[in-house]
C-alpha cells in the first residue's frame, strides 16, 4: 500500500477525531448554559431550547466540515488520483 494512502487514512481519522473534540466541548458548554438559563427562567424554555438547537446545529457544522474533509481525503484525494 502506498504511503500516501496510509497518510490519507491516518489524516482522515485525525481530522474526524480532533474535529469531534472541539464541537463536543462547545456543545457541552452550550447545553450547560442553556440548562442554567432554563433553570433561571423556566418561562423562556421554549425560546431557549429553540436557540439551543440552532446553536448546536451550528457547532456541529464544524464537525461536519471535518467529516467532509476526511471524506475528501478518502474518496477524492487529488494525490491518489
Amino acid at each position: 500500500m502506498d504511503y500516501l494512502s496510509i497518510a490519507s487514512i491516518v489524516c482522515a481519522a485525525f481530522a474526524v477525531s480532533f474535529g469531534a473534540i472541539g464541537p463536543a466541548l462547545a456543545e457541552g458548554r452550550a447545553v450547560a448554559a442553556a440548562m442554567d438559563a432554563i433553570a433561571r427562567q423556566p418561562e423562556a424554555a421554549n425560546t431557549i431550547s429553540r436557540t439551543l438547537f440552532v446553536g448546536l446545529a451550528m457547532i456541529e457544522t464544524t464537525a461536519i466540515y471535518c467529516l467532509v474533509i476526511s471524506l475528501l481525503l478518502l474518496f477524492a484525494n487529488p494525490l491518489l488520483a
Binding site: A57, E60, T61, I64, Y65, L67, V68, L71
Partner: peptide
C-alpha cells in the same frame, strides 16, 4: 459556501 457545505455534510453524513 458555508451553508452549502453545512447542508450537504449534515444530510450526506446522516445517509452515509
Amino acid at each position: 459556501f458555508s451553508m452549502f457545505v453545512r447542508l450537504f455534510g449534515n444530510v450526506m453524513s446522516g445517509v452515509f
